[in-house]
């Protein structure tokens, strides 16, 4: 059933940031070079205010690029044209639309004919486990449920690159774990490329293939940490998890940098 949703979606697209620089009015906000493979999950981690969200906003087409280029699937198109869709931290749902109608909105914008929308909406809501709440307004849903709706709505755009801007940042620990599991299961079905901004080191290590640690503003790459066992359910029990966590925390200015053999940055 839900394969209908996936069928027309190509898997994830490659993303290339080629010396991309983004400026704010008062100076540079971010400047980096990064290649992301199709279907890879890359977490961007950095001190708050460093400009990590700005990088996602640029890829979403919400922020102009000052210099260099960003290429998605080899082309310099960004945002919806490039099938880049974004999940926001805040309540980005339209509060006057029910869960169902919020998801439908994305389908309508994509030009899906009215009679096909209903079925697709049900499949998407089913995928995020919200079928019983389809007709609830956002104010009647919990924070976690609202983020599920937002994920469903974003998936309705059939993104090949999913940009996630601290999407679980405002959720309690339990809900956050549920959401992380949900995201992984969705990713396993679709193999979308994911760029995910977080300030949570554990979240980064649990979800990522690679963790990109950024410097304070302007955001540059401090180090790229390749996760030892990506998305291994027992990852937290393995010694690398703690070591890599410590390494990242040290780069963010908490504690001593452990002695590492190779510094490839």
């Amino acid at each position: 059933m839900s394969s209908a949703v996936v069928a027309s979606t190509d898997a994830g697209a490659p993303v290339e940031l080629d010396k991309m620089r983004i400026d704010y009015a008062d100076g540079p906000a971010a400047h980096l070079d990064l290649k992301v493979s199709p279907g890879e999950i890359v977490m961007l981690l950095g001190p708050s205010g460093c400009g990590k969200s700005t990088i996602l906003r640029a890829l979403a087409g919400l922020q102009p690029i000052a210099a260099g280029a960003a290429r998605i699937d080899g082309l310099v198109r960004l945002g919806p044209e490039a099938h880049c869709a974004m999940v926001f931290q805040e309540d980005a749902l339209l509060p006057w639309r029910t869960a169902r109608r919020n998801v439908e909105f994305a389908l309508a914008l994509r030009g899906v004919p009215r009679r096909e929308r209903k079925q697709l909406v049900l499949e998407l809501l089913d995928q995020v486990g919200l079928t019983p709440f389809a007709d609830h307004l956002p104010k009647q849903l919990s924070g976690g449920m609202r983020q599920r709706v937002q994920l469903a709505r974003t998936l309705a755009a059939e993104p090949r690159v999913l940009l996630m801007d601290e999407p679980f940042g405002a959720l309690d620990a339990q809900t956050r774990l549920d959401m992380q599991e949900l995201l992984i299961s969705v990713w396993r079905q679709r193999r979308t490329t994911i760029l995910f901004v977080t300030h949570d080191v554990d979240e980064a290590l649990l979800l990522a293939d690679r963790v990109v640690v950024l410097t304070p503003r302007p955001a540059r790459i401090a180090r790229i940490v390749a996760v030892a066992h990506p998305r291994d359910p027992d990852a937290q029990l393995q010694p690398e998890f703690g070591l890599q966590g410590k390494e990242i925390l040290a780069l963010l200015g908490h504690g001593q940098l452990p002695p590492t053999e190779d510094r490839k940055d």
Binding site: G61, L62, G79, P80, E81, A85, M86, F88, A92, R110
Partner: peptide, 12 residues
């Protein structure tokens, strides 16, 4: 809220 417009424009 700007995020409403941002969300809509990222959805096309």
């Amino acid at each position: 809220p700007l995020v409403w417009m941002d969300a809509a424009s990222t959805l096309g």
